[in-house]
Design a protein around this nucleic acid. Structure first.
Length: 399
DNA sequence: TCCTAGTCAATACT
DNA sequence: AGTATTGACTAGGA
């Protein structure tokens, strides 16, 4: 991939990580770069030469929340970092791992590709030697690091770049040979973000024209504004998923139940409710209904001029999920984790949250968010309706 | 062409 | 040093 993107951690070319040690799978994805699809004849350790893709395809529904919870637990208990875990087990970078562990999307909302890390995690959890393997890896890294440090010290260089990470070379992408000066990362200031959020509240899907305006007003590139909207929408959507999971009782026993998710924008500002307003779960998926799930909750915060009161209280949620209904799981009850039945021995999934639960006493801050969600959701619906309206033939309407 | 899903990777935070 | 956040980018769907 030309850019940094696809390549990924799996560039673990010659570092100690990949190969070695007991049979840790080097999760390499296709070397070529073709990425996603085909390749990956990754022979998962104990599973009859199936590629992960195949395993993912065959996998029954997994409880992503329980899996990440367990993984976090194991990692912290054993003092293993996300970076090591991500690079050696998942083939993802630290940031991605952090994100994944903190906000897992429910299984039924994941694409095949998105499910892969969870299947890997599940497999890892089931491996009785998972921890020790990773520990070995850690030791090796440390050793290598020390070595490098020593040698460079004698050379008189500093070893800063010693990001144990293998790749890291930005050179990989400069085929021509010369380093293209990397463009500095754009960092939006609080005011800019504020303005963008405001704009989002009024129009989650701004027109090109609006985007242009925003860009010039904020002095940003239009692509930055576009990216911001894309990212914001998708991240808010994710927050919603988390709520869904938790509202559905997804948390396990030990959990405190607090959702780490919704942390609106820093307190500061005067804005009463801003933060993660949201957008809707318009979840397209298979065309089900408008995602307006979320029961009603009232809430203060009437800013931005949107009022939004009632809406169809639809059940939202996804529809028909694939096979679902796991077949042979039946875990040992209580704790998730191990057990190992069936091909995967997966732990049952708490299945789709049929949301719409009427409970949820409504925790203070949550209320506002829900309201916002509904509001934004409506915007989404409107967006879609407008789109549909542009189609003459009703049969083309999607909803 | 526009959107979403997934990620990367820089960098802010702890 | 490890973790969290987030702008940018790729792939793929419609």
């Amino acid at each position: 991939t030309g850019g940094s993107s696809g390549g990924s951690v799996n560039g673990l070319a010659g570092d100690p990580l990949a190969s070695q040690s007991s049979g840790l799978k080097p999760l390499s994805e296709d070397p070529s770069g073709g990425e996603s699809q085909p390749g990956t004849p990754l022979p998962i350790p104990g599973h009859s030469g199936l590629s992960i893709q195949e395993m993912v395809a065959m996998s029954p529904e997994l409880d992503t929340y329980a899996i990440t919870k367990k993984v976090k637990e194991v990692l912290t208990d054993n003092n293993l970092g996300q970076r090591l875990f991500g690079e050696t087990i998942l083939g993802l970078t630290q940031g991605s791992v952090s994100d994944l562990l903190a906000r897992p999307k429910p299984w039924h909302k994941l694409s095949l590709k998105g499910r892969e890390p969870f299947v890997r995690m599940q497999l890892w959890l089931q491996d009785p030697h998972s921890v020790e393997k990773l520990m070995d890896m850690k030791r090796l890294e440390k050793k290598a690091y020390m070595k490098r440090r020593l040698s460079s010290l004698s050379d008189g260089h500093s070893v800063d770049g010693v990001l144990p990470g293998p790749d890291y070379m930005q050179g990989s992408q400069s085929p021509g040979g010369q380093q293209q000066l990397k463009k500095p990362r754009v960092v939006l200031g609080p005011e800019e973000k504020e303005a963008l959020k405001k704009a989002y509240q009024q129009k989650p899907y701004p027109s090109p024209k609006t985007i242009e305006e925003l860009a010039s007003q904020l002095n940003l590139k239009t692509s930055t504004v576009i990216n911001w909207f894309h990212n914001y929408r998708s991240r808010i959507r994710r927050e919603l998923f988390i709520e869904e999971i938790q509202a559905a009782g997804g948390m396990g026993p030990g959990s405190e139940g607090g959702s780490p998710s919704l942390r609106g924008s820093k307190s500061g500002e005067g804005d009463s409710c801003d933060g993660t307003e949201s957008e809707g779960t318009v979840e397209t998926r298979q065309g089900l209904g408008l995602g307006v799930g979320l029961e009603d909750h009232r809430g203060a915060c009437k800013d931005q001029g949107m009022e939004v009161e009632s809406e169809a209280g639809g059940s939202n949620d996804s529809p028909a999920e694939m096979d679902c209904s796991a077949s042979g799981l039946a875990g040992p009850g209580s704790s998730c984790g191990q057990s190992g039945l069936g091909i995967f021995g997966l732990t049952e999934a708490s299945s789709t949250s049929s949301a719409s639960s009427t409970n949820v006493p409504a925790r203070n801050p949550r209320d506002n968010n829900l309201r916002k969600k509904k509001a934004a959701n409506l915007n989404n619906i409107i967006h879609r309706l407008e789109k549909a309206a542009s189609k003459e033939d009703p049969s083309e309407w999607e909803f």
